[in-house]
Structures are given as C-alpha cells and as structure tokens.
Computed example of a mutant assay.
Amino acid sequence: RTSSAPDIGDFQHNYFDISKAPKSAVIHYNEVVPFSEVSRAEIKRKSDGVLSVDPLIDDNPDQLWLYFMTYLNEKPYLGVNIHGYHVQHYTTYERRRSTGGHYRTRTVQRTHNVTDFHLTIDLTSYVSRQWLRIAVIPSKNTMKAGEVVSLRHAIEQYTRSEKNLKEIVCQKQFVGWNFQELKNKIKGLISSTGYPHHIGV
C-alpha cells in the first residue's frame, strides 16, 4: 500500500535531525539523476543562505526540484568564532532614599567581560562540495501513522497547496565534523601560547 503524503502544514519546521527519517525516505547523492541545467528562479542571498519567492517554483514541482538540486551543490559557509576575554571586577556605589527621607549609600561589587581578541577563521575550503543525503523530517503524527515522506512528496504537496502563505526549507548539515574535538583543540592551542584567560569557541 502506498501512503499519501500528509498535508504540508503537518511538517515540522526548524527540526532537522535526519536520524528520525525512515531509511526509505532518504535520498543519496548517487541516486539522483544528474541535471544538465541550473535553476532559473530569481534568488536573494542572505547571511543564512538562499531565498526565493519566484512564482516559477511556487506551483511547478519540477522547477522546485531543480531549484533544490542547484543550490544543494553550493558549499555552506563554515566559520569558527574565537573569543578571548578576561573578567574585570569593579565597585559601584548606589544611593537610595529610605521611606523616612534619608539617603543611604551602599557598595555593590560588579563584573564585566573585557575582550582581549575576537577573530573568525573561515573553514569553508575544507567542506566538500558534494552533498551526501537529503531527507524530509516527518512530524510526530506522520511517524505515528507509519507514513514515509520523500522529498518529491514534500515538493508536490508544497506546489499543490493553495495557501497564501507557505514555506518549504532545506537546511544543510555538516557531516564528518567533530565540532567538540575541534573546539577543544583550538582552546588547547591558544592556551599553549601562555594566554591565561577565558576562551570561547
């Protein structure tokens, strides 16, 4: 039995744990037929990716598929922000008026962070251009019903929807990077120079 795709409003936004997707819903790079043209949809480039409101991809599933395939082949930006800082302690005095009209001054100890250095390292050149896999993350109701939602199903649901406001999002994730280990090594390298204060990565 082939299950129909759920309504587009049933999809969860901003929830991208690919391990939740059934294996049959995952598309791998080598399973996609190579395309000979790129998407002609008008786009706007923003700090967090590519955005399009072009009618070309609003109700045409083939054009929306081509749009996703085109920009999946662009590397996502990967930058590491490194912040070195120390904590400075200082004293302030607060003057308050009592109910009897008398003023009292009290001492308050405060702290604030002082930046020693702040830099960003661009690691995009170390990111593979080829994407690995893509999947639609189903909602809880969809998973409970045992339905499988493929990217093609999601695209068809989106383009068939007549809602005035609708959105379909593809978010890229880095695979094969141990970010915790990377953070620890960067902190260790900076500490080895003799820097004694706090390091944020």
Rank of each mutant, 00 (worst) to 15 (best):
T2R: 13
A5W: 04
P6C: 02
F11C: 10
Q12H: 06
N14V: 04
N14G: 01
D17L: 04
I18S: 05
S19G: 01
A21F: 02
P22H: 06
S24E: 14
A25Q: 07
A25G: 12
A25T: 06
V26I: 15
V26N: 03
H28W: 01
H28Q: 07
E31H: 10
V32I: 15
V32K: 13
S36C: 01
S39D: 09
E42A: 11
K44T: 10
K44N: 02
K44A: 09
K44C: 02
D48W: 15
D48A: 06
D48Y: 15
V50T: 15
S52H: 09
P55E: 08
D58L: 07
N60F: 03
D62R: 13
L64P: 03
F68G: 04
M69K: 11
T70E: 05
Y71L: 11
Y71G: 09
Y71V: 12
N73M: 10
P76R: 13
V80M: 13
G84M: 04
Y85W: 13
Y85E: 08
Y90P: 04
Y93C: 05
E94Y: 05
R106W: 04
R110E: 11
T115M: 09
T115F: 06
T115R: 06
I121R: 12
T124Q: 10
R129D: 02
W131N: 02
P138E: 01
K140Q: 05
N141A: 08
K144M: 02
K144V: 01
A145L: 04
A145G: 04
G146E: 09
V148W: 00
L151F: 11
R152L: 01
R152N: 13
H153D: 15
T159A: 08
E162I: 03
E162N: 13
K163W: 03
N164V: 06
K166N: 11
E167G: 04
I168C: 03
I168M: 02
Q173H: 12
V175C: 03
V175Q: 07
V175Y: 05
N178C: 06
F179S: 12
Q180M: 08
E181R: 11
L182H: 04
N184E: 14
I186Q: 03
I190E: 01
I190Y: 02
S192G: 06
Y195R: 09
I199L: 06
G200T: 13
G200K: 10
G200V: 10
V201N: 11
V201F: 10
